[in-house]
């Protein structure tokens, strides 16, 4: 099964819709609660990052019919992360005052994703940021 969701820049109202839908889908497939929560947390954080920091992008969710491996890919169209190492430091954030006033920008997004995913990979250039995570 594969699903792709569009995520709009600065659309805080809809931020999190993909994670809600993915969580519901996994629930109907009988996936255990711990995994559901991990996927939802990572997806929500990554989705919020696209809304706050990028010019928009997509969330791609896939679950392997054979081994049940869950894959999440997040691909945005820029402007990219200047210093990836710094961005993964707990508490470091470049979120705007607007994003902070809405409850985001604690500087824990990438840290949270890494801590709940079975595998985590991030690449970034001026053309965009790509995050790939798996869960089992």
């Amino acid at each position: 099964m594969k699903k792709v969701y569009q995520v709009e820049k600065d659309n805080y109202e809809d931020a999190g819709k993909a994670s809600t839908d993915i969580k519901r889908t996994l629930k109907t497939l009988g996936i255990e609660r711990k995994v559901l929560k991990a996927v939802a947390i990572a997806c929500y954080e990554a989705e919020i990052n696209i809304v706050i920091h990028s010019d928009g992008g997509t969330v791609t969710f896939e679950i392997d019919d054979d081994d049940g491996l869950i894959r999440l890919s997040f691909d945005d169209i820029g402007p990219g992360i200047e210093d990836l190492e710094l961005a993964q430091t707990p508490g470091y954030s470049t979120a705007s005052p607007k994003a902070r006033s809405l409850g985001f920008g604690a500087g824990m997004g990438l840290v949270n994703m890494k801590s709940v995913a079975s595998s985590f990979d991030i690449r970034s250039s001026k053309e965009g940021t790509h995050i790939y995570m798996t869960f089992q």
Partner: peptide
């Protein structure tokens, strides 16, 4: 418990069950 009176406090609750 939150002072954040927008939909993201609900999204967060949903994500965390």
């Amino acid at each position: 418990i939150s002072g954040l009176s927008n939909v993201q406090s609900l999204r967060t609750a949903e994500v965390l069950d």
